[in-house]
Simulated scan of single mutants.
Amino acid sequence: MTLITTIAAAQLPTIGAALGVGFFAGQFQIAGERFALIRAPKAQGFHAPVRWGEAGILIPGADSVVDGLANTRALAEAGSELGTWALSLSIDGYEDWYLGSRDENELIYRAFKPTAQENWCSFRDGDNPSSLPPGYPYTAEHPAQTPLAAFQEGGEEALEATYYHTSTQDGPRYAWIQSFGGGPQTDGHKGSARPAFAVRRIKVTP
């Protein structure tokens, strides 16, 4: 099997389509480089509720709002169970999985919102300067529930309507979390157990 590590822009599939054993969620950029974001299959790339880390301990290098791979490497180097799990994943030959950053997990919410409930519209929930095109704050109706049955609430690939960890730290005691119910983005205590999922990215070429 040939592993997909880059893709031409013209060959990008529709949102939710299979891409490199995961599901295409959209595009984002890091320092001007363009990437396609891929969410792992639920059966192989999801972790049961687990702590992000130790409250009160600041992990150097885990602060990026967009570069989840860099964050995850920093977590693993610090001995994090969650970071080590993500980097050790091997799914059908793909071994470049990591925990999505704050902006990456927001993009996942827009692509695969599981519920039909209204979105949370507080302090700039949904603001995502890293996504392509840039994401603007949610309205009550947008984004809408995904039209893809497999990702809708109760579907085999659906995210639970709860908070998931991101890899983005928010100071010594907190890290960013993303709700897949109404979509609020906030900081959660590092010692609180929450589920997590893995993503990977591939470079998009002209």
Results as ranks from 00 to 15, higher is better:
residue 35 F to T: 02
residue 130 S to A: 15
residue 47 H to P: 00
residue 70 A to R: 11
residue 111 A to D: 08
residue 88 S to G: 15
residue 118 E to Y: 01
residue 95 E to R: 14
residue 160 E to M: 12
residue 49 P to L: 14
residue 34 R to V: 06
residue 170 D to V: 00
residue 76 A to M: 13
residue 12 L to K: 09
residue 3 L to I: 15
residue 49 P to K: 15
residue 79 G to T: 03
residue 46 F to L: 12
residue 206 P to D: 15
residue 122 S to L: 11
residue 132 L to Q: 01
residue 163 Y to C: 08
residue 13 P to H: 07
residue 18 A to Q: 14
residue 54 E to T: 15
residue 116 A to G: 15
residue 94 Y to D: 08
residue 3 L to F: 06
residue 65 V to F: 04
residue 162 T to W: 05
residue 114 P to I: 03
residue 65 V to G: 02
residue 41 P to L: 07
residue 10 A to V: 10
residue 191 G to R: 11
residue 173 R to E: 15
residue 23 F to D: 00
residue 107 L to A: 11
residue 108 I to D: 13
residue 14 T to S: 15
residue 66 V to E: 08
residue 93 G to P: 00
residue 28 F to D: 06
residue 86 A to V: 10
residue 73 R to C: 09
residue 142 H to K: 08
residue 37 L to R: 04
residue 91 I to Y: 12
residue 133 P to L: 14
residue 64 S to I: 01
residue 142 H to Y: 10
residue 94 Y to H: 11
residue 56 G to M: 06
residue 33 E to L: 05
residue 135 G to K: 05
residue 82 L to G: 06
residue 69 L to E: 07
residue 71 N to R: 06
residue 9 A to I: 06
residue 72 T to L: 07
residue 201 R to K: 13
residue 178 Q to K: 01
residue 80 S to V: 08
residue 76 A to I: 12
residue 179 S to V: 03
residue 169 Q to D: 05
residue 101 S to I: 02
residue 87 L to Y: 02
residue 177 I to W: 09
residue 69 L to Q: 05
residue 89 L to M: 13
